[in-house]
Structures are given as structure tokens and as C-alpha cells.
Nucleic acid binder design. Sequence first.
DNA 1: CGCGTTTTTTGATCTGGGTCAATGCGCCCA
DNA 2: TGGGCGCATTGACCCAGATCAAAAAACGCG
Lengths: 246, 246
Amino acid sequence: MSDIVFDHKECGSCPIRHRAVCARCETDELEELDSIKYYRSYEAGQPIVWSGDRMDFVASVVTGVASLSQAMEDGRTQMVGLLLPSDFLGRPGRDVAPYDVSAVSNLTLCCFRRKPFETLMTRTPHIAQRLLEMTLDELDAAREWMLILGRKTAREKIASLMAIIARRESSLALKSTGDGMMFELPLTREAMADYLGLTLETVSRQISALKREGIITLEGKRRVIIPDFDRLQIETGDDMDGGMMA
Amino acid sequence: MSDIVFDHKECGSCPIRHRAVCARCETDELEELDSIKYYRSYEAGQPIVWSGDRMDFVASVVTGVASLSQAMEDGRTQMVGLLLPSDFLGRPGRDVAPYDVSAVSNLTLCCFRRKPFETLMTRTPHIAQRLLEMTLDELDAAREWMLILGRKTAREKIASLMAIIARRESSLALKSTGDGMMFELPLTREAMADYLGLTLETVSRQISALKREGIITLEGKRRVIIPDFDRLQIETGDDMDGGMMA
DNA sequence: CGCGTTTTTTGATCTGGGTCAATGCGCCCA
DNA sequence: TGGGCGCATTGACCCAGATCAAAAAACGCG
């Protein structure tokens, strides 16, 4: 089951301190949050909650990657969200999970009991402000994803996924090799397929094709090197210049 | 161009007073909002803003339907949002539109100049609270849409669209014929195709098929009758019982 | 190490929905 | 009263990606 960690970490040294829901909090607000928080860890592949489950906490992803996905009863599934460090999990005011949530990689959450968090939120506008901002960003990401799912070819979908991960990763620590980029793919082929609305065979074939053409290079199965980001960008089918990425 | 209407309507008699961003506002807050608001009307098909345009207002849809869509330079387009009465358009804190917005049907917006709206928002938590709630709802809707785009067949997509419109309509005024439902389709075949990630030919074929099988009935080109909602629901491929629709 | 298990790649074939091309149907306006 | 124009429907054909099947890496694990 879930490997619950009770040791209490200091917010001051938290890697997501300045990007998570708590980003705007003052010292006193942080203390209040601190008093209702606890950490929880999951191993790669573990389920966190199932759709329909009661959910009595909300959380920030501290390290690792989690996924939100919807399943149809015949087994088809669609990933509808990928939560990276600093992303928020759960919805204040709702007690039943609408999606399956699971740990894609090893994962640590900073959890807050829902009720105290909700009351705290009504008192401290800084949290609500930040949450609104983050939710609007997620909505934009979801809409970008709708274009990918609805209109892009398999090759464009793979290129888009690579570009998105590379971009997100680069906002943090990105090791660069020459002027290229390198990152660790946090997803299995099946997870990629679930995210992109493809089968895992098609994912594999398109990755092979991009590799064959030198647009990406694999080191082992998971480490990806992008020698020329602009070249990848072209393959996404996106408007190059578009300066909308707010 | 856009047919700007200056006549000032009373918030008290506003049809979306209790569901829009202003839903939670007290009398005094409403007065402040009132002082920065103005109405604007568009005819079906008119563009409202283009992606990349500067946007110096935010707005509530009062009557009619608007769409948000993304276009790729080769012409492929994906609708990423459908705004019905009470839905909110624009994002506080952002001055460039990330999507093309256009009037799907005749449309009236209640607009607020963005800057004053933003300052008002920092002062009145009721507005920010309501906006957060609405944004979270939109995020849920976007994620439901991702499942439709990524995993459903053309027939399931059409059935899902019909079911969603019927359900939204029924939350308002829905004329029922016997125990069936009836509503006006606000979208052209092409708009449906853009929404569903299909071509208009496929949309037309699938609608014909559902009609042939008696799952829907058309009166004219736009009026839809659903004699048995459960039967339609089955065609959507969704979990029947699922009580997640928060 | 060698062997079972899981994940990934590759191949062969099939098919849902795209593409291209007519045709039909209101509806407005002269 | 009959073009002309903007939807919408229908048909014929094709192809990207699904499906089915098998081989090949990678990954523990005793």
C-alpha cells in the first residue's frame, strides 16, 4: 500500500515553495498551512485514488509525476492531466474524486486535510488567488491538449509531447548537451498512448521514426536527447512564432 | 463590424444574475461592477477577437453562444470551448487572447473593462471566489472533452454532444414533449465537426445514422428531439450510473 | 548466470473516418 | 418564379492508425 511518511519537512527548504499553491503566502499563513500538512509518498505505478472515491485531502506534488485519467468500462482510458512538481491535486469544495489518480513515477505529495484547507482558504486570499491562477493555467494546458487530441497526427502528437515535457523541464533544471536538451521521460509507452489518444504500438513506431530521422536520440529507453529543439518544434505542427504562451 | 449596444440594463432583471461571475455579489459590489460594465452584441458568425489580439475586457455571456477555437496554419481547427449564457470570457491578468473567439449564434456580452475589473477583484473576494469555482467547472468540462476527443468513436462523439447540449439546456428551460426532450442545436455541422475533431461529412453521416435508428429525430435542420434520453446515453459510451457529475 | 516477466519494437492486415466529388435543399432577393 | 448561395447529405475511394501476432530487449530475482 501507500508508504506514508510522517517526517515533517521545513517549508523554507521546500523545492516547490515558490511555485505551488503556497507561493504567495506570508510567514504567518505558511505557519497555518504547515500545521495541517503532512507528506505522503507513492511508488511508481501505485494508485492514489479511484474515481468515485471519497477524497478528504488536497495536495501539492512535491517530487515526481502523477496522472489523472478517465476510464470507460470497456477499458479505453484517456489521461486528462499530468501533474508535475508544484501542481495541485484535488478541488476544494468537492469530496468525491472525478478521475483515477495514480503515481506515474515515484511521488511525494504535500497533503492538506480538505476541511481545514477550505476554511483557511476563505481567510487567506493569497491561497485562493494563487489557486485561481494555477487553475487558469491548467485550463489553458487542457485546451492546448484538446487541439493535440482532436486534430494532430500521431507524429505531431509525439513531437508535441516531447516538446511539452522538454519545455516544462527546462523551466526547472535542464541539463543541456551542447545547445541540445536532455531529459528523462517520466512515462511508459502505454502512459504516453493514454495521454495522446493513441495505441502503444503507434507510439513506439512514431518514436522509432523520429529517432531514425535524428530528430530525437534515445539513451537507454527513457533518456531523451533533443539535438535541435527548433527541428522538433516544426514536427509538432504548431505555429512557430505564436507568442501566446502566457 | 460589431453592433455595439450602449443601453444600460438593470442587473436586477439580468437573466444570468445568479449564475455568472457576479452571482455572489452583494448590492454594493454589484453597483461597482455596474459602473464599469457595458453591453455588446454580435451576430451569428461574427468574430469577437482573434488569437494574439490585445484584449482589454473580460465579459459574461448574457444570451447566445460563443466559441473558443485554436487554428493551425494549415487550416485545421479545434474548438476548445463553448460559452453558453453565464459563462465567462477572458482572463484577468492577461492582455493577449490565446484563442479565436467568435459568436456561434446571435450573442450579447456583458463586458467589463479589464483593468478596473482586476482591481475590483482584488478588493471583493466574492468575485474571485465565484470565478475560481467557474474555472474549476470549465476545467472539468475540458477534461470530459479530452476523453471524447481522444477515445470515442464518431458515433459516440455525436451522441455525447447531443447529450451534453440536452443536459445543459434542461438545466434551464427545456421544452419536453411527452417524456422526450427537445432543443435547438446552436451549431452548424461544421462547428460540430470542429468541436468533435471530425470532418463535417462524418458528422452528417453519423447524425443521419442516429436519425435512421430513431435515437434522435430532426425537425427541420436544427431542432432535435430525443424521444428516449437513456437510449441516447447508451450511445455515448459513458458509464451510465457514474454519479461524478459534480 | 540463466530464466521468467514485463516492456518495447516490429511486422502484416484491416477498418473507421478522411478526402474528393456530386447532388440536394432551403431561402433570399430580383 | 427562378437563379444563386450557403448549408447539408450522400457516394466512392483511400489511408493513417488500430488490431492482431510475434520477436526482441530490458529487468529483476533466485
